[in-house]
Design a protein around this nucleic acid. Sequence first.
DNA 1: ATCGTTCGCGAACATTGTTCGTTACAAACG
DNA 2: CGTTTGTAACGAACAATGTTCGCGAACGAT
Lengths: 238, 238
Amino acid sequence: MAVRDEPVSRRERPAKPALSRRSILDAALTLIRERGVESVSLRHVAERVQTGPASLYAYFASRDVLLEHVLDDVYGTVELVDAGAGDRGWRDALAGTIVNTIDALGRYPGLGAVALGMIPTLPGALRLADHELGLMSLGGIPEAQAGLAIDLIAQFVAATATERTVRGAPLGAPERDAIRDAFRSADPERFPHLVRSVDALTRPTEQERRDFAIQVIIAGIAGAGGSVWAAGPASARA
Amino acid sequence: MAVRDEPVSRRERPAKPALSRRSILDAALTLIRERGVESVSLRHVAERVQTGPASLYAYFASRDVLLEHVLDDVYGTVELVDAGAGDRGWRDALAGTIVNTIDALGRYPGLGAVALGMIPTLPGALRLADHELGLMSLGGIPEAQAGLAIDLIAQFVAATATERTVRGAPLGAPERDAIRDAFRSADPERFPHLVRSVDALTRPTEQERRDFAIQVIIAGIAGAGGSVWAAGPASARA
DNA sequence: ATCGTTCGCGAACATTGTTCGTTACAAACG
DNA sequence: CGTTTGTAACGAACAATGTTCGCGAACGAT
């Protein structure tokens, strides 16, 4: 049941390269890059490292644990953007780091979904959080606020990466037209604002949406100060 | 291959109540409420409506399609909050609507994940979007900005609901302590800011995080005007 | 009463994650 | 050098999944 950290084979020169956490991670990574997370079955991974599915359990306790480590590996490769000079330096650096994280996840279709279902405690995620905390500290964001912002940013990144890669391609023109038609043909009596705003809803590109969201989040963090509601928002339900 | 909209049974009075989209949806809904989306297999749903898995394909083309309709059904039950009087009325109404949506999804563990992998075109989602557009119009938000905001809000809601319900319970005290320990025991050389902010990162409750995020988003939408970046954010990678 | 249509579904298929018990090998020991 | 021992590796099996196929049976029309 114990999971090992180092090469396991006791042969000094096994016929094939010895199994290792690293080689399994690499196999999973290329598999995801080629065919997405959904196709990462233990059998496929095992095949790539020339063994059977049962052998993987010596290195990762389950498929989920394997995916967690794959994700953290990707987090670890994200290029951190440092703050330049000037007053707004930290903002651009934060935005750049966020974009880089989204891009990194985007190269591994479906990994974003893994991130959403996981509490980040592995080094790659810590590295990202630490960098972002440093940038916000530079910008004079109060510590309590920065702590909350970290969560929001991580959630946004994971959600964006997930949305973007639900199904391989980044949403082609035909689908976009189909959606536009669905909106346009909606009942104008029931959904007046929506029908009126069909263009505003369907024209923006993926990038525009992303940049708008990043701008909103950073502006919200920097701007509105620590004034969290005294009472929670109006909620009709118990 | 055609999927029907109305009851399919040709008997006028079949021995059991006739299969229908509605009854299948209800079965799936209670199943999700009790045991989460992951346990919604076609076999379990079929069992609840006293039939076999193959029969469901007459009403929904696949499991994913079924889940899409289940999700939209839940969207349709969300209590919309109208804007009260005053200048900030629309903000509170928008916040309240968002909270209600999160709560509604929260009652169906795992449904948020479905929302993230889907482009909303069914009536329940349209109803929500239309209401939110109306509120923002009331607040004088430019149409283009409101269109982008709709996306961000939908994404945030789905991601929050997903995070909150990865694993049944809403994150108990022992897990929280484990996370705090993981942060505290991180290398202070590599992650100085993180170690310093351990409290800010681990103390806030789920509700505080949610309210902070909503405040940031609404403030960002209302505040920063239409000044989207001229050029995209600094990105180091191609 | 018979026919043809088609709804409903039992059975099967290919995959999945995971577990169990055996095999085979390298080091430790006599 | 022969025996023992711990354990990495793995083949086989299990239960569960989404989906498809094709048959039987019940219906409306004739």
